[in-house]
Amino acid sequence: MKRFSMKSLALAGALTAVGLMAGAGMTFAQEVTLRLHQFLPAQANVPKFVLDPWADKVEKDSGGRIKIERYPAMQLGGKPPELMDQAIDGTVDIVWTLPGSTPGRFPSTEVFELPFMMTNAEATSRAYWDIFNSKMKDTEFKDVHIIAAWVHGPGLIHSREPIAKLDDMKGKKLRAPTRIVNALLGQLGATPVGMPVPAITENLSKGVIDGAVIPWEVTTALKVAELVQNHTEFGGDHALYTTTFVLAMNKARYDALPDDLKKVIDDNSGADVSALFGKTQAGTDAAGRKVAVDAGNNIIELSATDVEPWKTAAQPVMDNWVVEMQGKGVDGQALLDEARTLIDKYTQK
């Protein structure tokens, strides 16, 4: 029988202890699983080109210690307007949603949805983040941790019948995403119908609505070019409208992360990420437009001159919003002026 010296046994014991400590070290290196919930199908442009790449990068930057499970199309239950509350109450960990899905709850975000405010999505998203960080973070969004805040590319009208002039809007039942865009469509003569994006396809196919306002990028997932044949684009330096988004995380979940994993989230948050998200989302507009062109649909391109009557007709929406904000204790005119200044600043860069 082989005999072991006391020295050998001591060495073996030391190696075992080292192994146990290494194992314990691996155990103490906290691993976190986060559930990301959102309202579009997984193959849509925003999940595919914005949310998934972001989640993949967070996982990679964390050395695999953060795992982000992705749940598209409201797979975890509820309706799109409930997403923010799901993030706040911890039903899920992260959501992608529209603040405007819950009218009046995040009023300051509406400044970027006002008519003819947006120039391009990247510049407007930077302006949005700046104002979020200085004016909304500790007030309207105090119950949630915001990772990014951005807008989509130019909004336009998709309709069964051609809309080439302002009078063509009369009586048209058009889907709108938010309170402000509802007000805009009503001011322009249409009958606004508020509904979340996933409901557009069914309501167009059943004839409940005559058209919808959405950016080009989401039309492919919704098969809009198959359901309507006319698309009205607005020329000039400013888009008809845009919609604000946030990527929001449960505050307690974020606060409970160890510092190194919190840094991973922080490094993938903020102004540059918001601008990238806006630019990326708008960058997929061209593919959606091509589908409509290839289908032989009618693309109505309004010139900057053609758009002037629309701007004049839309002005009361802005005026009314400023007054409404004053009633909420917000200096709406100052906020509007600041948003315009920041958008212009970032557009010129």
Rank of each mutant, 00 (worst) to 15 (best):
F49R: 12
G235A: 03
T16K: 15
F39V: 02
Q229R: 15
L222S: 06
P192I: 04
A24H: 15
A183M: 14
S62D: 10
E31I: 10
K206W: 07
L342Y: 04
D93I: 02
V213E: 07
G153R: 11
Y346E: 05
L83S: 04
Y254F: 09
H158M: 06
L9R: 04
K262F: 02
W150Q: 01
T280P: 13
K279Y: 11
L156I: 04
A248H: 00
L185A: 00
L257V: 10
K290H: 08
E82P: 15
D210Y: 13
D89A: 04
D85W: 10
P198I: 02
Q333T: 11
L40E: 00
G153N: 01
G153I: 04
V32C: 08
T91C: 10
L257C: 06
N320A: 12
L174W: 07
L247V: 14
L166N: 01
P99T: 01
V323F: 15
S8I: 10
K60Q: 13
M1R: 15
G207V: 00
E31F: 03
P47Q: 01
R253Q: 09
T27E: 13
D143C: 06
I265Q: 03
L20R: 13
T341S: 13
I146G: 01
V151L: 09
T312C: 08
Q38C: 08
L240F: 14
T312E: 06
V144D: 01
P115M: 13
D266K: 15
D259V: 15
N133M: 07
R105E: 11
V323P: 14
L335M: 11
V307R: 02
L204K: 05
D61P: 11
I88G: 01
L261Q: 12
L342G: 03
W321F: 07
M249R: 10
A148P: 08
V317P: 03
K142V: 08
E301P: 14
L204Y: 02
D130R: 12
Y346Q: 05
Q30I: 09
D130T: 13
D168R: 11
I209W: 00
I146Y: 04
I214P: 08
V322W: 12
K263T: 11
S5V: 00
K251E: 06
K137V: 06
T312L: 03
A149G: 10
A183L: 13
V213H: 07
V58H: 06
P192C: 00
P215D: 05
T244Y: 00
T33A: 07
Y71C: 09
S5I: 05
Y241N: 13
K279T: 12
D344H: 10
T284Q: 12
K135D: 02
D267S: 11
R340P: 04
F49A: 14
P162R: 05
Y346T: 07
G278F: 03
W150C: 02
L302K: 11
G288T: 08
L342R: 14
G278A: 09
R126F: 03
A42S: 06
R105P: 09
Q315M: 12
G327S: 10
Y346A: 01
V291K: 12
L51N: 05
I180R: 01
I131V: 14
A287G: 06
N268D: 00
